[in-house]
Amino acid sequence: MTQQEIRKLLGGYAANTLTERERTALFEAALEDQDLFNALHNEEELRELLADPVSREQIRQALEPVAAGRRRAFWMQPWLIGAASLTVAAVIAIAIVTWHREPAREALAVRSVPNQVVQNPVEPKPAAPQPGPRIPAPERKHAARLAARSAELAAQPAAGLVLSQAIAKEEPATDIANAPLYQGPLVRYSVLRSGPSGDAVRIEVVSELAGRLALYRVDAAGQWQRVFPANGPEVPIAANTAYQIPNDPIAIRGNQDKFRLVITPASGPTPRAGLAAGALNAPRAPLVVQITIGPN
């Protein structure tokens, strides 16, 4: 086995990307070669961490800035786009209001001069204090409408942001173990198998309700542990959209590996059409769907 072949196999060992044949070849070589055996042992700690879904998710998150940076330039950051949108909307609103007031003032001034000439041809009286420029009623209404519309436009992204933050802040209050199980048309799922023996799975979920999504798994002690998202708030989801979770397949244990999908419907009407679809007139209690998966 060449040095490069050994490096290739060792590289795939910790990340668990080797085929059965490659694994066998690696082990056979390690049995004969002390250095390779030592190298394999050195990889063991890393391999165990990468095999653990919690650790793997943490590592993935630690590497996230790299992945995100690769896909999205700085000027494409959502917060920057949001702030820029607000600024642009505010500038437009001010410009519209200012633009509609200026012509009105000018029109008033032009009209008032001939009046003064006619009324006071010889001895002009000192001008009486003016209450302020008079804007004709139709123009005033139009400007007010435009200003209101601009303010509405400017407020929309902020409302969306507030909603996202509100969703993100809400803590799951569901008793997963004792929650009634939901069986109905609002939640559909399918199990996506991968890996050499099909024992690595992901779940594709489509909910007719917008809200928040989480996936739990029962551990050896019979306790429900959240596996997606591994930590942090539950993930906001839109209605009638397919989501594949978790990001990395889960290795199935035993014959009856139990999972529970928990969908907490969004509370109250939302200003965003995408999230709001299906949220109104919908149940508010979390929908808990049990999935039992066995070996392929």
Binding site: T17, E45, Q58, I59, V66, D248
Partner: peptide, 26 residues
């Protein structure tokens, strides 16, 4: 061990981080 790994990852160069991220993506 996980904490040690996270610290080691934080100290990794850009290329290694990218490589590991791609491997974790499968």
């Amino acid at each position: 061990t996980r904490e040690r790994l996270m610290a080691a990852i934080a100290a990794m160069g850009e290329r290694c981080r990218k490589l590991l991220a791609l491997k974790l993506e499968g």
